[in-house]
């Protein structure tokens, strides 16, 4: 990879995406071994700088770094000087002064990784910024699709839910369209911005129509705070109209797979029997996330060489 940072899928070429996925395949083999650790990035330091609560992404990055023999520092906001009024840039520069090679950042404001990337020598990895992107999630989703389906090009992938506020959806839209899949967005008009069709996706407000003959269904998490803001009247009504049930799942292709970035709200965006059913690859996504994040760290480290 030629870039210093992983800011988003938007910024990646098809070649770079494929390189990450191919590299991840190698690391997945490593993760299947008895000894799951390789010395590839020994002596490096990664800092998890999480301004939003996260368990799975932070843990996944931490473990990915450790599997590569990189030291990891978890810098969480409540214990940092951020609460004392330190600016974001000052916090990041302080972390860099400690010798960090990677700054893995999650923040509720879009563009924060881009801001840090400009002021830091370290590689900045976007672990989710506001409503912008969550690139490693999309990479692990693509990796999972490729693993299950053998390809991505030509597939039809439905993304169901709160596209408007979802960085996972945005990153997946960029990844899928770049890799040659057809993306369909399904949800109420309040959660799917009208102009998004310009990105080369199809929009369906009716889930039954949208799910017809799709190869992959990605269900997005409905954030509970959207309730009462006029996006939809209640989670019950949402589930009734856009929840993924087994009846609806039967509209998709027979060999369709069901994905979810987690954490799930069972009975809101997805029925329990679907989440736990044979078409669900939700836990595989978690495992693949490790391999993909190892690949990202490994490839970004190459820049410094």
């Amino acid at each position: 990879m030629i870039k210093k940072d992983l800011l988003g899928i938007k910024e990646l070429t098809v070649e770079e995406i494929n390189l990450i996925l191919d590299t991840a395949a190698g690391f997945k083999d490593v993760l299947g071994r008895d000894i799951k650790k390789v010395p590839a990035l020994r002596g490096r330091t990664a800092v998890n700088l999480f301004f939003e609560p996260s368990t799975r992404t932070r843990t996944s990055f931490e473990l990915a770094a450790k599997r590569l023999s990189t030291d990891v520092i978890n810098f969480s906001v409540p214990t940092s000087s951020v609460v004392k009024g330190e600016s974001l840039i000052d916090t990041a520069l302080t972390i860099q002064a400690l010798g960090a090679d990677f700054v893995i950042i999650r923040h509720s404001s879009s563009g924060v990784p881009h801001l840090l990337a400009k002021s830091l020598r370290a590689s900045v990895i976007n672990a989710g910024d506001g409503m912008n992107e969550h690139p490693t999630q999309a990479l692990l989703d693509s990796f999972t699709i490729r693993e299950k389906k053998g390809r991505i090009e030509g597939l039809t992938v439905a993304i169901v839910g709160d596209v408007c506020h979802s960085r996972v959806a945005k990153s997946n839209i960029y990844a899928l369209t770049k890799l040659g899949a057809r993306a369909r967005l399904i949800g109420p008009p309040t959660l799917i911005p009208e102009e998004i069709v310009s990105l080369g996706v199809e929009v369906f407000h009716n889930i039954d129509e949208g799910l017809k003959a799709v190869d992959v269904i990605m269900v997005l998490r409905i954030q509970m705070e959207r309730q009462g803001k006029g996006f939809f009247p209640s989670t019950e009504e949402y589930f009734k109209n856009w929840g993924l049930t087994s009846d609806r799942l039967s509209l998709a292709k027979d060999d369709a797979i069901v994905m979810h970035p987690g954490p799930m709200n069972r009975g809101v965006e997805i029925a329990s029997d679907v989440a736990d059913g044979p078409k669900s690859v939700i836990l595989k996504q978690v495992t693949n996330g490790l391999a993909v994040r190892m690949a990202v760290l490994y490839l970004l480290a190459g820049v410094h060489e």
Binding site: S110, M131, N132, K170, P193, I196, L199
Partner: peptide
Amino acid sequence: EGLLSTTLGLK
């Protein structure tokens, strides 16, 4: 508000 705000993830 528009396509650019959507792609930048800004409100």
